[in-house]
Amino acid sequence: MDTRTTGQGGIAITPRGGNQFGLLRVPLPCSRPDGTDRLTAITATAGRRHIERRRSALRTLIDHTPDHLASRLLRRRTDPAGVVLTASHVRAPEPMTVLGTPVIELTAIPWLPPGHTCFTHLTTHNRTARLSALTSTSAHNPQQLVQQWQRACHEGDA
């Protein structure tokens, strides 16, 4: 997935790699009692501008840092010991078609980074949000995570 936004030129895949995500650590405000309050706090630290800055910084790191050093920095940043939850969100363009046929549903297929126990991927399309969760066999009660996402979405919709 090329992470450049519309209007950014250049080749689709840089010489050093194509999947250039913006890595962003977001504090989870679990102590806040209200779901809307928690979402507002998360949105303040994970908005589009923050993510674009991280994406741009990651592209710069990959393009201008020696491979061995960039690899060490990325491994440290994504080390499972320092990451509680790995999540992603993709806002699909609307309307969207495949071979001329309108897309009516969209489901993301998450990946599981090495050493991690869970990856969630939220996709929004056609005024519908869909969560995909992939867990390892060592994940404790993965169904609870999905149920909590569902509850949070219902709280936000109320």
Rank of each mutant, 00 (worst) to 15 (best):
T40N: 05
L85H: 12
T40K: 13
R53S: 07
R53L: 10
G35V: 11
T86K: 07
R55H: 06
R75P: 03
R59P: 04
A81M: 03
S88Q: 06
D79A: 14
R75D: 11
R48V: 14
L61W: 09
G47K: 07
R72F: 06
I62C: 02
V84P: 01
I51G: 01
T45R: 03
D67K: 11
D67H: 08
R77Y: 07
D79E: 06
I42R: 01
R48W: 02
L39K: 00
A57F: 05
A46P: 02
L58I: 10
H50P: 00
A70T: 04
T43F: 04
V84Y: 14
R49V: 10
D37V: 10
H64C: 09
V90H: 13
L74D: 02
R72P: 01
R54W: 05
R49N: 11
S88A: 08
T40L: 15
I51Y: 05
L85V: 12
L73T: 07
H50F: 00
P80W: 03
R76Y: 03
D79Q: 06
R54F: 02
T65G: 05
R49C: 11
E52Y: 00
G35I: 12
G35S: 10
R72Q: 13
H50D: 02
R49G: 11
S56C: 03
L69Q: 11
A81R: 09
G35T: 12
G35D: 09
A70N: 13
L61S: 11
S71P: 00
A57L: 14
R75K: 12
L74E: 02
G35Q: 08
G47F: 06
R76P: 00
A46Q: 00
I42D: 07
A70K: 05
G47Q: 07
T36G: 15
T36N: 08
G82Q: 13
D63R: 07
E52T: 11
G47L: 05
D37N: 07
G35E: 10
V84K: 07
A81N: 11
I62L: 14
T43Q: 14
T86E: 08
R53F: 01
L61P: 05
R53Q: 11
R59A: 08
T40Q: 08
H64V: 06
S71L: 06
T86W: 09
